[in-house]
Computed example of a mutant assay.
Amino acid sequence: MTGNTTHAPLTDPRTLVVVPTYDEAENITRIVRRTLAVGPHVEVLVVDDGSPDGTGEIADALAASESRLHVLHRTEKNGLGPAYLAGFAWALDRSAGRSYDVVAEMDADGSHLPEQLPRLLEALDRADLVLGSRWLPEGAVHGWSRHRELLSRGGNVYVRALLRVPLTDATGGYRVYRAEALRSLDLTEIASAGYCFQVDLARRVLQAGLAVREVPIDFHEREHGASKMTGDIVREALWRVSVWGLADRLHRRGRARAVPVAAPVVALPRHR
């Protein structure tokens, strides 16, 4: 991999897994325990948007007896992006004292396997951001309808075509960042609320000339609770990606400031 970024080796990096929640009472205990079981270097931050089903209170009860679990309470539900940004700010504000090397994203509904987290962390030895990809040849999705799969695959094709980013799964939410890479970005500029937040972060990392890798993952449809995907989220993603694509083309034509050249993306083989 080329680029100006140098990467210090990471051995059992102190990792904070940020888990946004809204009405995930049926899932939160299971996902927290499985994530903490990955190893003593892993901590979890639950970012709860005032869940009326008591998710935040369940997380508080778990945290009372587990020092590696932290809970951040927010007063309103205003989207995945703001929840993650609050979690990132919490992590980076405390990095000086807590020495987090890595900040990770993981869904609360069990769709991401905590047992595959070491695979993503290993790939950070030569990257600033590692994406867990459902759509690499050795990735897999379990429990989706054909329509849902086509929607996700089509969305990623649209992202690649308009933004010219060589990613198979820019919309995926299982990923790990070096803390220093997140700190180098201006996160205050981000306004994306829904799942296009994931696209926004990936493109900003690439535009900054940082290194991105993808590794195959298994994605499982939730067994408990309701999906948070709505038509408004899909429409926001289409609109924002279209705007970003148009801006990129204007930049390339010299009508605005040029976008930095992106570092190449490397897909890793699946570990069996």
Rank of each mutant, 00 (worst) to 15 (best):
G3Y: 01
N4W: 01
A8S: 15
L10D: 10
T11A: 07
D12P: 01
P13N: 10
R14I: 05
V17S: 05
T21A: 13
Y22I: 05
I28L: 01
I31C: 00
V32F: 00
R34Y: 01
V44P: 01
V44Y: 10
V44T: 04
V47P: 05
V47A: 12
P52W: 08
G54Q: 08
G56W: 04
I58A: 10
A59G: 07
D60C: 14
A61Y: 06
L62M: 05
S67H: 11
H70A: 09
V71R: 06
L72Q: 05
R74P: 03
T75E: 11
E76P: 02
N78D: 15
G79V: 09
G81D: 03
Y84W: 10
W90P: 11
A91C: 14
R94S: 04
R94C: 12
S95F: 00
Y100V: 02
V102T: 08
D107V: 10
G110F: 06
S111P: 00
E115F: 00
E115L: 09
L117P: 06
R119H: 14
L120W: 08
L121Y: 03
L124G: 12
L131F: 05
W135M: 14
L136N: 06
E138Y: 03
W144F: 14
S145H: 00
R146H: 08
R146P: 00
R148E: 09
E149G: 02
L150P: 08
L151H: 14
S152E: 08
G154I: 13
N156A: 08
R160G: 14
A161V: 07
L163E: 04
R164V: 07
D169S: 15
G172A: 08
G172E: 05
Y174A: 10
R175A: 13
Y177E: 02
Y177H: 12
Y177S: 09
L182A: 06
S184N: 02
S184I: 01
S184C: 11
S184T: 03
L185S: 04
A191I: 09
S192V: 01
S192I: 03
G194E: 11
C196A: 12
Q198L: 06
L201I: 06
R203V: 09
R204G: 03
A211H: 13
E214A: 06
V215A: 11
P216E: 08
I217V: 15
F219Q: 12
F219D: 10
R222F: 09
G225K: 14
A226Y: 04
M229H: 03
I233W: 07
V234H: 04
V234A: 07
E236G: 02
L238H: 05
L238M: 12
W239D: 12
W239H: 14
G245W: 06
L246E: 12
A247V: 14
L250C: 14
R253M: 15
G254M: 14
R255L: 15
A256E: 10
A258F: 13
V259H: 01
A263D: 11
A263L: 04
R272P: 13
